[in-house]
Design a protein around this nucleic acid. Structure first.
Lengths: 256, 256
DNA sequence: CTTTTCGGTTGATCTGGATCAAGTAGAATT
DNA sequence: AATTCTACTTGATCCAGATCAACCGAAAAG
């Protein structure tokens, strides 16, 4: 109990706490680009929880904002619950991705975050982070970049929902996952979907049935192979072309 | 030429340059909450251009990112152009609102910003701002808040596009404008739309014709009075209820 | 003043994807 | 091993909103 987070001489199986500097995500995570000394200072304020399980909440809409969260392993969804029990999925978060940035403004979470599969999560008390960043220009810069990136991503999502039809949306979604897995050293062609069809539909503004039908069609067209949660992308290039035919692009995939 | 921006003893009609401390937007703009001394320091890095006109670009997608922009008077739209000449409108920006936050990450603008009506714009070199914020915790805090707010706004837009039908979207849009005008000391009931029906449609993921028909219907239902760009909201409460009936809400407006 | 242009409106029709309905198969529970 | 339960799939139908088409009227251009 008196032991601080950074004392990790004892490694227990249940409580793996890897410092940033030895974490494989260091090149795409918050500490990216910090010099060793700064990284050490940041490291000291990060808490590493024991693994969380499917269905656990990191936080709920309305909770007071204390920490930012980073996925170390596993995956997390964020969503805006609506009164009638429904939800709008706002994002799926893979290792190295920051969660909770939308809560800084009024210190209240305005979405909920739920674990999709057993995950390790790093927890960063925001007040400490902010304080630290006043004396660490490189950390401040990194925060600006990450916040800005989140805005860019949301904007491209707005474009996707505003202009693209169902098949374009699903293709773009799969390609985005593929690219993100690739950056993390996983196969970009062969992966497991930790989210349900329903959640994919919500994220893309589509009904479950539409998502299901599209998977079937993509498979018939030879674009991919899907069985339950396991998906293999067979033709990234064609998937790419499916994701961005808005008008006039007549090289349709024939399903005969 | 040797005269600095803060020397404004000579006031010319064409070149009105009001310091932040005497600007009416100070309570909702970037310098919000800064103490007088900090505000003065921020003030010195802000450039105030002569008025820009409808159709002028603040920046275009692909431009290198140098400055953030703040609307002082008038209005601006941001949009993502697509190859085929189309565009996705990403936002409409009113006085006090910051433009360009999505460009920080890779120092390239990934959307374009176009003036909707004659507007005065403040220009803030980001490198200076960032530098200043390292020595001004309150400014850094304000930047975090504004970036976070942008994310929240984009997320509620995602929800709007993902879950709400055409009439809910338009009602929500009008209410958002109304609230923002109100905060700025303008009438929340009676204002001019500086954007075209087409731009509203693009922003809301709807066809122009749908927007036009909805205006007509809302008018028939007594919710508002609209003539060309001039709009009067007659019943904010009912508009509110229109904006959030997703399912089951049966108190439909009868158009008889 | 006349003509053109362009933004907006209105009507008619069409369709992508929602909704409704039924069935299937894995995984969890007994 | 039997029984839920839940996620997913597939088919049939429907409808909100897109698209197509025609027209109108304000404002800009000649």
């Amino acid at each position: 109990m008196g032991q601080t987070v950074s004392d990790r001489k004892v490694i227990s199986f249940e409580n793996i706490k890897i410092a940033c500097k030895s974490c494989s995500l260091v090149t795409l995570c918050l500490p990216m680009g910090l010099d060793p000394e700064d990284m050490e200072r940041l490291d000291r304020i990060i808490k590493r929880s024991r693994p969380l399980h499917r269905g656990d909440h990191l936080f709920r809409e309305g909770d007071s904002f204390q920490c930012l969260y980073i996925v170390k392993t596993g995956s997390v969804k964020t969503y805006a619950p609506s009164e009638d029990g429904g939800e709008q999925v706002l994002g799926f978060h893979l290792p190295g991705e920051l969660i909770g940035l939308d809560a800084i403004e009024n210190a209240i979470h305005n979405c909920s975050a739920k674990i999709l599969e057993t995950s390790a999560i790093c927890e960063i008390p925001f007040s400490h982070l902010e304080e630290l960043s006043t004396s660490m220009p490189s950390l401040q810069h990194q925060m600006y970049r990450l916040l800005s990136r989140e805005i860019s991503q949301d904007e491209s999502m707005l474009t996707l929902l505003g202009k693209n039809n169902a098949e374009e949306r699903l293709a773009a979604f799969l390609l985005s996952l593929s690219a993100r897995f690739k950056r993390r050293g996983f196969s970009p062609f062969d992966f497991y979907l930790s989210m349900s069809r329903h959640e994919i539909g919500s994220y893309l503004g589509l009904a479950v049935e539409t998502v299901s039908r599209l998977f079937t069609r993509f498979q018939e067209d030879g674009l991919l192979e899907v069985e339950r949660k396991h998906i293999q992308l067979l033709d990234l290039e064609r998937l790419e072309s499916v994701s961005k035919r808005t008008l006039g692009n007549k090289d349709r995939v024939q399903s005969t």
